[in-house]
Amino acid sequence: MHIPDAFIPIWQGAIYWIVALVFVYLSLRWAKNELNEEKLPLVAVLAAGIFALQSFNLPVSMGTSGHLVGGALVAIILGSPFAAVFILTLVLIVQGVMFGDGGITTMGANILNMGVVGGFVGFYSFKGLKAATGNMPVSAFIAAWLACFIPALCASVELWLAGTFPLQAGMVAMGLYHAIIGVVEGVITVAAIYLIVNIRPDLADQGVLPTKVGAIA
């Protein structure tokens, strides 16, 4: 889902950068206020883990592959959509600058899609689903699926505005592929949440903890 420089005109990329920078600023404020010495190791490990997972493309049939985005995972486990903006931004900077995965002028659009849309959709859909069902893994799976699918649709609209993709064909293809990639996203997100909750429940947001443990905490 990393949009390269060639796919969006510079002036449109600049607009996405400006919007993205507002959220990046808010995420830096979140990090300054919310992160402490207890949570820092988890944040750093999540950044490293998401970088590695994003480099691992799994086959998803139809001649296409896909990898974890990670916005939902980060937002759910750290209890804020700004956590996703914070971590995805720094991962996208490393990927774009060092490895050419995603463009420089399009980095704002990539931050918006994967960090902002992925983080907000993942976090709030998880909250809503968890409140409605009380089921953490099902809620996290669906939230992660949505946090992969909806950013893909956003990217296809951006690429339509850029004149790179026709709207309908772009949305059908991006939607279809990322609906399948989203299943991988959901499975990995739930597995990672279980792993973190098992090894360091004190660092996980109370929203992912079983009620009994959450009550004690």
């Binding site: 796919f7 970088f51 590695a52 480099s55 691992f56 493309n57 086959p59 592959s65 893909a152 293809a173």
Partner: peptide
């Protein structure tokens, strides 16, 4: 994380990702 990254070098699919596949279409 490093193990996942090393595995990716050998096991990652060479097929294009969703965005690249869409561009090819």
């Amino acid at each position: 994380a490093i193990l996942i990254g090393v595995m990716a070098v050998f096991l990652a699919s060479s097929d294009p990702d969703g965005l690249e596949s869409t561009a090819l279409i």
